[in-house]
Design a protein around this nucleic acid. Structure first.
Lengths: 154, 154
DNA sequence: AAACAAAGTTAGCCTCGCCTAACTTGCAGC
DNA sequence: GCTGCAAGTTAGGCGAGGCTAACTTTGTTT
């Protein structure tokens, strides 16, 4: 008897795996251990291990040597994290950040943004897109009407 | 011989410790093991352990049973993470999120925001503060001119 | 069908960051 | 100056999530 559906909040690692698996399935039609390992830059052994855990947690269906498919729960989680990923990327792009910074920051932040914040940033992003002048000021680093720009904290 | 200054990027845990230590020093004038443990909701043993590591890494000066002080490097790091914390909190407050969500998300995100992004969000925050009407639309969840609000991803 | 390569798996190990239990140190109060 | 308690430390351990090395399975090639 494995620990099916203990409903732990899904760690960052778990979210990363699911996100990549969904991406692979969407682009190649399937997700092999070797592809997941490559995509996450970790060893095949680690992937096998995690995939077995995800099977036990009911997030995917896995048959030794044969492959895997996401369950409804797994796909939902994967879509959710993917959504956060895209949203944050879109948002940071709007602010004029470079691709590398965006990638790094999104990869780190995406696991910690709650639904309410997702919604707020979606709303903000939508508003910002209709304010090209404001965005231009943001991108040029304008911080008007302040005496010291404050690199200070506390 | 300990590993002094191998300059690893400072883990989230390390940043959390430094942030709390600085906060304690700023409010109580000192940071004892027991206070740090209380503040981070972890055991004293864990704190002792980490404090010894931080000493080895040159982020603070520590004398057994006697206490600790941040080094210049440690204080700089602490101020930096504190700054990110305040900035993100300020930003999310602007979006109208509730205190609990803000606390949770900031605690998670603050470790993953690079300098360029910090700067961009500072700039954005400054601009937003002069746009009460826009902020009102964000807070009320307005996402105009879209047919389906899209909970979809991919 | 035999052999070989690529993919997958298992076993054993490591680091990080936390824990508890047991011991030591420092400091008040008597 | 002894004693008792709070603070601090040490020892040993655990789970997550990585790793390498060695083995097995699959599938292709001849």
């Amino acid at each position: 008897m494995q620990k099916s559906t203990p409903k732990r909040p899904a760690s960052s690692a778990v979210e990363d795996y699911l996100e990549r698996i969904l991406e692979l399935i969407n682009t190649k039609g399937y997700a092999r251990v070797v592809d997941i390992a490559e995509s996450l830059s970790i060893s095949q052994a680690s992937v096998t291990n995690m995939v077995q855990r995800l099977d036990g947690d009911g997030l995917l269906k896995y048959e030794k040597y044969r492959g895997l498919v996401l369950t409804t729960a797994g796909e939902e989680l994967a879509r959710n994290i993917t959504h956060r990923h895209h949203l944050l990327t879109d948002f940071l792009q709007l602010l004029g950040l470079d691709a590398q910074t965006i990638h790094h920051d999104v990869e780190g932040m995406e696991h910690h943004v709650s639904p309410a914040t997702v919604h707020a940033i979606e709303s903000l992003t939508a508003q910002l897109k209709r304010q090209p002048a404001l965005l231009e000021r943001v991108r040029s680093g304008a911080a008007p009407a302040r005496v010291g720009r404050a690199t200070t904290a506390l």
